[in-house]
Computed example of a mutant assay.
Amino acid sequence: MNAPLTAQANPRNVVASRSLLLPLVAAGLFLLLVVIGSLIYGAGPVTPREALAALAGTGSDEAWFVIRELRLPRTLIGLATGLALGIAGALLQAMTRNPLAEPGLLGVSAGAGFAVAIAILFGASTATLTTLIAQVGALAGCSLVIAATRVQGLGNDPVRLVLAGATLSGLLLALTSMLMLMDQRAADEIRFWITGSIAGKSLATFQATLPSLIIALTLVVVVARPLAAMALGERAAVGLGHHPGRIRFLITVTVALLVGAATALAGPLIFVGLVVPFIARAFSGPDIRKTLWLCLPIGPAVVLAADVASRLMAAPAEMPLGVVTALIGAPVLLAIVRAGRMPSL
């Protein structure tokens, strides 16, 4: 009796794997294109043809210097930022069972940004210290999100939860503005950083966040399966041997590590954690494990594509990355809110 059942189950698994493979390959190819675009396009004097020649080893020293010292670190930081925010958004949405949950909308990024602003005010300058402070702030913001989802009626209403998160974000942004009035030097640095940008960052900044990203991705592997079980309900998850409270705690820590690292790298970018899981779920369905797999290439691709656009839209100047991500994400948010029904999670 078992053999026919097994034989019937295998084709379904093969079909499911193939259905995920095609969007994964497509997202990977798009990511490759935007990585190349990030290396060859810029607002500076080096043209795409000169950049391609430098990558081929036949270009000028000036072009190779621009790629090696400016565009390559920027590309790596864009990859890390998109990866962190995309996965953090998917985890938040699955944990709260809310398709509008996003680090930038719920105050997690604002908490990290406020903590970094305090650190800058007190003279923090090293990348490691900024990363640690951002993660502490993100942890506080994420904890408030978890508390909000436990409030009667709030966690089950996507719009009310986002309004609560927007209130928290507004409060933290107001406090950040107050900090900017205390020190002109810090104000200039905070003002540039808070708009969101990955320009002018060094490889040292990227390397300082790598330990946090590695730990966070390890935790993602740990929580993915229990989180998928929690989608069936907490009683079902407990019946399968999982502990929902422990899983929520691990997700909180994971999101704090991811958002803190991304905020230290690029500033408080909004809507990335909303757009990336939204695109991934369009191909993967509600299964969080498939969604997380697709977020791996889609998150970096979205951030790098937005960054390339920020270089070209206002050349020879550059538009802040945070402005471009807002231009991309705002229509997606409106589309979700105006939909006849929320996507099931």
Rank of each mutant, 00 (worst) to 15 (best):
V324T: 09
I67W: 04
V116P: 02
F249N: 10
V275R: 01
I251P: 01
P226S: 03
L92V: 09
R160H: 13
L79P: 07
C142V: 12
F283W: 05
A315F: 13
G82I: 01
T263V: 14
L210W: 11
P268V: 05
P268M: 03
A199V: 15
T263F: 02
W293I: 15
I87V: 15
A280P: 04
R150G: 09
E102I: 06
L100R: 03
A216N: 01
R281P: 02
L39S: 01
A261T: 01
H242L: 10
V46G: 00
L294P: 04
L258M: 08
M180R: 01
A280V: 09
L294H: 02
V332P: 02
V66S: 06
T205F: 03
G104L: 05
N2V: 15
P48G: 10
E102G: 07
V14P: 06
R18D: 14
G241K: 05
V25Q: 07
A80V: 07
L213P: 02
T149W: 12
R235A: 15
L265G: 00
L334V: 12
A88R: 05
C295E: 09
R225M: 10
G200W: 07
A56L: 15
A90N: 06
G340W: 10
P316V: 11
L24E: 09
G165V: 13
V324M: 06
G155N: 04
Y41G: 03
A335Y: 13
G285W: 06
T128A: 13
L345Y: 14
S17Y: 12
L213H: 01
R225S: 07
G82A: 00
T254H: 00
L172Q: 00
A94E: 13
Q152I: 15
G59Y: 01
V324C: 05
A186R: 00
R281Y: 04
V303F: 04
E318I: 13
A282H: 10
P73M: 06
L33Q: 07
V151S: 12
E234G: 02
P211Y: 02
A237D: 11
S197A: 14
G111E: 01
A174Y: 13
A264D: 05
P11A: 12
V272Q: 00
L105D: 05
E50I: 11
A9F: 11
T149L: 11
V34G: 00
G340Q: 15
D287L: 03
P226I: 09
L154I: 15
P300V: 08
G82N: 05
V15H: 11
A174H: 12
G82F: 04
P73F: 10
G137K: 03
T209W: 04
I67K: 01
S310W: 05
F271S: 00
V14W: 12
V151I: 15
Y41S: 06
R150V: 14
M319F: 13
G37E: 09
L52Q: 05
G239M: 09
R311E: 08
L175H: 03
G104W: 02
L210M: 12
A262K: 01
E102P: 06
A16H: 06
R185M: 13
L172I: 00
A229S: 12
L92M: 15
H242E: 13
G59D: 10
T205Y: 05
L171I: 15
W193S: 04
L173R: 04
T58F: 08
A51F: 09
I328D: 07
L219H: 04
A261K: 00
Q8E: 15
L172K: 00
P277F: 04
A101H: 03
L163F: 09
F192W: 12
